[in-house]
Simulated assay, not measured.
Amino acid sequence: MSLNDDLTVIQRCVDDLARAVGRLQPPLGGPDLRRVRADTDHLRESVALLRASATATEPGTPLRPQGLVPIPDTPYDSSLWTDSDDEGLGVQNRHAP
C-alpha cells in the first residue's frame, strides 16, 4: 500500500469510530462519552495534519515536522560564553556559595 492509501484507510477508521461514538450519545451520554468524543475529534485532527504533511513532502523523503532544525553533536565554541556565568551553578573554577 502507498502512503496515501494508508492515510485513507486511517481516515475511514476514524470516521467509523466517530459514527459509533455518535450512536452511543443517546443511551449513554455523560462526561465519559464527552471525553471519548473529544479524543475522537483529536484523532481526526491528527489524521488531517498527517495528510497535510504527507502531501507537502516529495515521495520517498522521510516525514519531518516543519520548522525543526537539526542540532549537531559537535561542542559549541567556548569563546561564545566567556562573558557569562553559569546561572545557578556559580562562577567557573570557583565553588558555589
Rank of each mutant, 00 (worst) to 15 (best):
T74K: 03
P70T: 04
A20L: 10
M1S: 07
G22K: 06
P97E: 02
D77T: 04
G22H: 08
D77N: 05
P65N: 01
D6L: 12
Q66P: 11
L24E: 15
C13E: 08
V69G: 02
A52G: 09
E87D: 09
Q11G: 08
D85I: 15
L7E: 01
L80C: 05
S2R: 07
P72H: 08
L63P: 00
L43D: 01
L50D: 03
P72T: 03
T57R: 15
A96L: 15
L3T: 14
P75Y: 01
A48C: 04
P70K: 03
N93Y: 13
T57S: 11
I71D: 03
T8I: 10
L33F: 03
L63F: 02
G30E: 03
P59M: 00
D5Q: 13
P72S: 10
D41H: 09
S53T: 05
N93V: 14
D85V: 15
A52V: 11
P97T: 02
A18C: 07
L50K: 05
P31A: 15
S79P: 03
R34K: 13
R37G: 11
I10N: 04
V9F: 06
P27S: 11
Q25K: 13
I10R: 12
T82G: 08
L17P: 02
G22S: 14
C13A: 13
G60I: 00
D73H: 09
L80N: 07
P72W: 02
T8A: 15
L43S: 02
T61W: 06
M1P: 09
L50A: 08
R23G: 10
V91A: 06
V14W: 02
L80P: 01
D41F: 08
A56S: 05
P65S: 06
E58H: 04
A56V: 02
A56E: 05
V36L: 09
D85C: 03
R64A: 06
H95Q: 11
A38M: 12
T82A: 13
